[in-house]
Design a protein around this nucleic acid. Structure first.
Ligand SMILES: [Mn+2]
Ligand SMILES: [Mn+2]
Ligand SMILES: [Mn+2]
Ligand SMILES: [Mn+2]
Lengths: 224, 224
DNA sequence: TATAATAGTTAGTATTACCTAACAATATAA
DNA sequence: TTATATTGTTAGGTAATACTAACTATTATA
C-alpha cells in the first residue's frame, strides 16, 4: 500500500460515511473524490483502476465508487492511526489542536502495527481525539454517542461541547477567541430568527455566534 | 526535500565520516554509495545531478562525491531524527533495540521541526541512542567521548559497553544471548593469539567471543 | 607503457502519480 | 424528448525514481 493509495481510501471513508451529516453509507462520485483530494478527475480515474485491481473498491465504468470490506478495513486503520497520533501530539507533546492535523497526516502512514498499539496503550486507549472525533478500535469499530448540533439546542438549555466538525485553522482560531474547546459548557441564551444566529454564554461571558459556527459544533445537552 | 534525497544525504554522511573506523572525512565513490543504498550506480548517478543542482553535494564528472555544508547540515538533521526516534521507541514504548531501526527509518522523514524538539525534550535531551550512537544536537554537533574497541582492551582489565558498531538482527540477537547490552560490564579474562578470540566474563559467567564480535563493541576501560 | 580491471556515465525503458485536452455517457431541464 | 449540463473516461505528456545494457574514463597491473 502506497501513501497515495492510503489517502484515497481515507478520503473514500470520509466521503461515504464519516463526513458530518451522513446518516447512511453512500457511494462516491469520481469528481467528488477528485475535488476532495484536490486532484483532477482523470488522475483519480487512473487510481480507481488500481484500487479496483487490488480489490479495495467496487467500481463500474461511469458508475459510483464504494469500498469493499477490505478497503474499508484498511481505510479505517489509517483513520485510527491519524486520530491516535493527533491525540499523542496533543496530550503527550503539548501541540495545540490547530497544529496536530498536519503532522498526523504524515504520521498516519508509518507502517508498524506494534507502534500504533503501543501509542494507543501509552494514551490509555482513548475513544476520542482532540477534536472530539471518535477513534476506531483495532477492529475498525467506531465508538458511538448521542450528540447534536449546537444549532438545534433550544433556548434556555445548557450543553457541553463534544466535537468540532471542521478543523480548519480559521475555525479553530475563532473558537479559541471565544474560549470554546472540547468540554466547554455553553448556555443558549437566545436565538435570532432572522439569521439563525445564537446568543450564548460561556463562563459568564456572552457572545453571539452565526448559524454556520453553531452548525460545526457537536454538543451534549442530555443532562438538562 | 524528498524522502529519497534525504536517504542519499544520510548515506553520504555515514560513508564519508560517520561509519565506524573513519578517522577523517573522506570523499565517496558512486559505486560505494550505490552498493550501500542497494541501488544501481546509474540510478545514483542521476540523483547526484539533482543533489548537485540543489547545492547539497560537490561532484565533478568521474570524480568522487562530497557533501556541501548545506548537504551535511541537512543530512545530520535526518541522523538526529533517526536516533531520537529510536530512543523514543526504546525508552517510551518498550521496543527492543533490534526493532527500533526499521521503524525509525520511516519516522526520520516526518517533517516537523517542532515534533523533533518536543520528542528531544520528552526524552530529556539524550546524547546517545539505544545502540550507543551519538545523537547530533539541533546544530548538528555530535557529542564525542573516549571509547575503544573491545578487541583492543588488555587482558585483566574491565570495561563497560558504550556502543555497538553493527545493528543487524543477527549481531544484536547474539549479544542478547551473551547478556550484553549498553552499560554491561565485561572483564577481559584472556586473549587467544591464534585467532584473536577473547575470553570474557559477564556477571560471573565466562564466554568466548570471536575477534569479529569484539571488533563491533565499543567500550570504556578508562576506570581501571 | 599497453592492457585489463574498475569506476562512472549515458541511453533507453518502466512505474507511480500527477497534469491538460478532448471525448463519451449520464442526468437534468426546457 | 431532445438539448444542455454534468459527470466520467481516454489519450497523451511530465517528473521522480528505479532498472538494464552499452559505453567511456580512470586506475592498476603486467
Ligand atoms: Mn485530523
Ligand atoms: Mn495522509
Ligand atoms: Mn538505526
Ligand atoms: Mn530513511
Amino acid at each position: 500500500m502506497s501513501l497515495t493509495e492510503e489517502n484515497y481510501l481515507k478520503a473514500l471513508i470520509y466521503l461515504s460515511f464519516l463526513a458530518p451529516g451522513i446518516k447512511e453509507k453512500k457511494d462516491v462520485g469520481t469528481n467528488e473524490l477528485a475535488s476532495y483530494l484536490k486532484l483532477k478527475s482523470s488522475t483519480v480515474n487512473e487510481m480507481l483502476k488500481r484500487l479496483k485491481e487490488k480489490n479495495l473498491i467496487h467500481h463500474e465504468k461511469y458508475k459510483k465508487i464504494s469500498l469493499t470490506n477490505s478497503g474499508e478495513r484498511t481505510g479505517l486503520k489509517i483513520v485510527r492511526k491519524h486520530r491516535l497520533w493527533e491525540t499523542f501530539l496533543f496530550t503527550k507533546l503539548g501541540f495545540d489542536w490547530i497544529e496536530i492535523h498536519e503532522v498526523a497526516e504524515q504520521l498516519e502512514h508509518i507502517k508498524s502495527e506494534k507502534l500504533v498499539e503501543k501509542i494507543d496503550m501509552l494514551l490509555g486507549y482513548p475513544n476520542y481525539d482532540p477534536h472530539g472525533d471518535p477513534i476506531p478500535d483495532k477492529c475498525g469499530k467506531i465508538p458511538q454517542r448521542i450528540c447534536k448540533n449546537l444549532s438545534t439546542v433550544e433556548r434556555g438549555k445548557n450543553c457541553v461541547v463534544l466535537a468540532v466538525r471542521n478543523t480548519s485553522r480559521d475555525f479553530l482560531n475563532y473558537l479559541e477567541d471565544l474560549n470554546i474547546s472540547i468540554k466547554t459548557e455553553i448556555a443558549i441564551v437566545g436565538k435570532i430568527a432572522f439569521d439563525n444566529s445564537i446568543k450564548i454564554k460561556i463562563k459568564n461571558k456572552q457572545h453571539s455566534i452565526s448559524n454556520k459556527v453553531a452548525d460545526n459544533l457537536l454538543v451534549d445537552d442530555s443532562f438538562n
